[in-house]
Design a protein around this nucleic acid. Structure first.
Lengths: 245, 245
DNA sequence: CTCAAATGTCTATTGATCTAGACAAGTGTA
DNA sequence: TACACTTGTCTAGATCAATAGACATTTGAG
């Protein structure tokens, strides 16, 4: 006897999207690992108590994401199931840590600018509001799928060439080194989860209604002086964050 | 000139719900602090490029949550704005840390059982699958609003009276002490964000489509032996997590 | 009091979502 | 090949979401 899985009506979230979310979660939990396929549409329709067409809409959305692939006559196969685990620790460095989970890591600089510090960023970095900052905006991906989009801010007086060096070296750690900073540690990270905005949907290639986890973090040199403030938004259905204390 | 704020159509997420999410975020960011009220419905309708009735649906949902209150003739006032910050560190203890952010903290034991360890939990606790565990299910709230729902698992051989002691003392730390465990530390925390399921919606009194942050964590004694596995789900629109490394 | 500005309520219409049923077409097995 | 099982496609109708416009009601300021 299959358990009736609950979906809610008249909530502003279409049934097909709720069901897509549930199936995505089940895939990532490994619930369908035995067969390597999603249950037949008629079975899912029965479990969720909806029409088969509604389930089809959900599966179509997941196929669009590249998570499953339907084959007429056979069924709907799972193409990808894992969430990438991203470690957050005192020595968080982006490219490390992802390690063997993805074969190929890409980071792309999508923009940079010199901007005045907002009140929030100034407070986090311990500088005065309006002080000059170098802003770097990047997108990171693993095996071709966007994983996160980030905006980082560095005091311009201490790290004036951050944008050029990052563009040349492809690494914040290495760009810091060219300014004479050889080591740094993460001081604080604040995490919030929310729906992605239009910008994030586009950059992360997410389907609308998707969730991002936003981490606001501060890195400091070994004397404790803040050197970087960053706002990284992770595609929540592709990543989990592993906090090491 | 008001900036046009983007909402997406035909995404399975109703416009009114997207707008409700955006307004909730703006409130929590303090964007409307100057006036203490949400902009008039006609202004919001203009900003989002939708009909006033659609904005009204969004505001009705926020009023239902207790976040705003509309008064005819005056406007829509903000009732509550803050997100509670929850610290995650080596010494994470629930009731501390929330500290002065909420006046009154409530934790409610909603159920307990003795269950066999699943493969996942067994691996996390370093015991054999099927070993007996004490399961505690709790809901925590601040100033009357549910903040998190949690399921915790303790090896039954070492902590046989966990459920009774927790019910009596209202604290995991104190219940540990009655079993001769005076100190413990958090070893790992894994974080995932996703849509809340029907159960979580009910327990956390969330409106459907809402987001939860799920933290899976392991606590160990000072010799490094795992003593607790827990799955805590935070209401994402009421909490931020502060990671201290 | 008068008026502008705000929320509250109603009707009507359009498009998206969901249900229902039927049948076509591909796959794997007996 | 015959058959069961699966996904693909089509039509039709019911319900929800969003737009549009009109007007009532309440509040606060002049």
């Amino acid at each position: 006897m299959a358990m009736r899985k609950v979906v809610e009506r008249q909530t502003g979230v279409a049934l097909w999207r709720q069901i897509a979310d549930r199936i995505r979660l089940a895939i990532s939990n490994g619930d369908y690992d035995a067969a390597g396929m999603v249950p037949p549409e008629t079975v899912l329709a029965g479990e969720f108590g909806v029409n088969r067409h509604t389930v089809r809409s959900a599966l179509a959305a997941l196929a669009e994401e590249g998570l499953v692939r339907a084959v007429q006559g056979r069924g709907t196969m799972i193409e990808r199931k894992e969430r990438v685990s991203y470690p957050i620790s005192k020595r968080t460095r982006f490219s490390q840590g992802l390690g063997r989970q993805v074969k190929e890591i890409g980071t792309q600089l999508i923009g940079h600018a010199e901007v005045p510090a907002s009140g929030e960023i100034a407070a986090a970095l311990g500088i005065s509001p309006g002080a000059r900052l170098v802003e770097l905006r990047t997108v990171s991906s693993g095996d071709g799928r966007p994983l996160s989009v980030s905006a980082s801010y560095f005091p311009a007086d201490r790290f004036p060439r951050m944008a050029e060096e990052y563009a040349r070296l492809g690494s914040v750690t290495k760009a810091f080194a060219t300014h004479g900073l050889d080591d740094y540690v993460r001081v604080t990270t604040e995490l919030v989860a929310r729906h992605a905005d239009a910008d994030e949907l586009a950059l992360l290639k997410l389907s609308p209604g998707a969730i991002v986890m936003e981490a606001q973090s501060v890195n400091a040199d070994l004397e404790g002086r803040p050197v970087e403030f960053s706002r990284t938004r992770f595609a929540a259905d592709r990543m989990k964050l592993k906090i090491e204390t």
